[in-house]
Amino acid sequence: MTESQRYLQRYWMILAIAAFLYVTVAGVTLLRARTGANTEIFPIFSWDLFSVVPNETMDYGLRVLEVDGKPLEPPQFLEQLTLFSRPFRISVHMAIQELGVAHVRGDTERARALAHMLYENHLGGAARRVRFELVERRFDVLTRVRSGRFASLTPIDLAELHP
């Protein structure tokens, strides 16, 4: 075997091992992510983007009841309030989902850290104190976008965001 053939063999072997390791780690994190936890090991990613089509969907929302002591009538979900920036940042939506998952899992420390991050990074400039309820929402995406209707809204916790 010539030197270049040996080099080529080594090259293909290294590439194949690297690709296999990448796909394996990404696959394991994807399987673990199905439990609701954020397990992505940056910068390895499963590239699971838009694969699951939202049908009857469940997510968590923050329904704001009071801003700086003033009750909202009727209460509104955080993303609908013009008080905060529009369009609503997707990172805020994702933080709320993780907050919901942490709460349901009983991970109060993580839930508290996420609530603190939400307030400091996204809401602090707009209000001093935001009283809200964490709501589990079930809806069909097309029905909701066309009519605003939810299949069900289930409050699961009441809390405050403040400095």
Binding site: T57, E79, Q80, P87, F88, H93, L142, V145
Partner: peptide, 24 residues
């Protein structure tokens, strides 16, 4: 359910995203 190869899949993804951000 509607999957990625179903007729409404893209519309459902668009709707979901715009609901998440309340954007356009």
């Amino acid at each position: 359910q509607a999957g990625f190869l179903s007729a409404e899949a893209a519309a459902r993804h668009v709707a979901h995203r715009l609901l998440q951000t309340n954007g356009e």
